[in-house]
């Protein structure tokens, strides 16, 4: 029990990791930041559209898609994984819609049935082919972000860019950021006022399915780093924190990126200190940041309420004599 929480040593936790040869730690921090940013950008729109649990469902149900893609393509080819995951995402949506439309089972139960079944199928495939699929149950649960620096480096024209998955995640994040900026108006309008979107000629079905496709791609590229379930946290926590702190979408998106950066760096240090799963530690740090902003905003609101109550009283006190 004494060894459960290791003693805190500032030098060990905050200095040593950065001083390591090869800069491995920086890659991990960068990967965490990229994953959290990409997920957070998509997650913001999911939260606005009240589809947070669809994110949950998709992140679970891409698992059989990834497993089958591994079996068929025989390698960790990015293309096969994206195709498999997109197919699994589409299958999930179709199953949910079929159950929901054809029977009297409500949508929430339909979501629950669809993603648990697909996830179970994925786990069974992975356990059956544990030696052949380069995946295992731990990876499914909480990823392998610590192994990022060990991957082979991508070199373009003699310049070393970085580990494969970091480069891939960077491409996905950049692409996502560009898309969000380019289609900002469409996303904004269709998220807040679908009727107005229709009257402006924005095809909300296309927006919806593009968002779902972006979600699938982000989930797959983040999957190896943080696993299927912690992706849900990455999707929801940055957006939820930003929602508490601001009411304006551009500010929210900025806060999302800030939250991603803070939780990634702080989380990895937390993981080093406690010697636990780094991905889970990043999520714990993100949770702590969320709780801080929750406390601050509710304390702020409470304080505001007290102040306004006092001014009301003062006003009352001032007006009473006049009335008298």
């Amino acid at each position: 029990m004494n060894h459960f929480i290791p003693p805190f040593n500032f030098h060990h936790v905050f200095v040593e990791p950065w001083a390591q040869a090869g800069g491995g730690f920086a890659w991990i921090a960068l990967m965490g930041f990229l994953v959290a940013t990409a997920c957070g950008l998509v997650g913001n729109f999911l939260i606005l559209r009240r589809m947070a649990l669809v994110g949950d469902a998709i992140s679970h149900s891409v698992l059989p898609g990834i497993a089958i893609a591994f079996l068929v393509a025989k390698s960790r080819s990015s293309l096969a994984m994206f195709v498999g995951a997109l197919a699994a995402g589409v299958v999930t949506t179709v199953i949910i819609e079929t159950i929901h439309r054809k029977t009297r089972v409500k949508q929430d139960a339909a979501i629950g049935i669809a993603f648990t079944s697909l996830f179970a199928l994925g786990v069974i495939l992975i356990s059956l082919f544990a030696s052949k699929v380069d995946l295992d149950q731990e990876c499914v649960l909480y990823g392998e972000i610590a192994f990022v620096p060990l991957e082979e480096m991508v070199r373009v024209g003699g310049v070393t860019l970085g580990p494969v998955s970091v480069v891939r995640m960077a491409v996905v994040t950049l692409l996502l950021a560009v898309l969000v900026v380019a289609f900002y108006k469409e996303l904004l309008v269709s998220s807040f006022d679908p009727t107005l979107a229709v009257s402006l000629g924005i095809n909300s079905t296309v927006v919806h399915y593009s968002l779902m496709a972006a979600l699938s791609v982000v989930v797959v590229s983040a999957f190896e780093a943080v696993g299927a379930i912690l992706v849900v946290a990455m999707l929801i926590l940055p957006g939820a924190t930003a929602t508490l702190l601001s009411q304006r979408l551009p500010v929210m998106l900025g806060l999302t990126v800030l939250h991603a950066a803070l939780s990634s760096v702080l989380g990895i240090h937390l993981g080093v200190w406690l010697n636990c799963s780094l991905a889970a530690a990043v999520v714990v740090a993100a949770t702590v940041l969320f709780m801080l902003s929750w406390l601050i905003t509710s304390a702020g609101r409470h304080g505001f309420r007290m102040v306004s109550a006092r001014t009301e009283n003062n006003n009352g006190a001032e007006t009473t004599p006049l009335q008298g």
Partner: peptide
């Protein structure tokens, strides 16, 4: 839905941290 997803994922992450410890 956001509240449910948030609690689900953050509690699970704390659990995973403790479990790996």
């Amino acid at each position: 839905d956001t509240a449910l997803g948030l609690v689900l994922a953050s509690f699970f992450a704390v659990g995973i941290c403790l479990l790996t410890m």
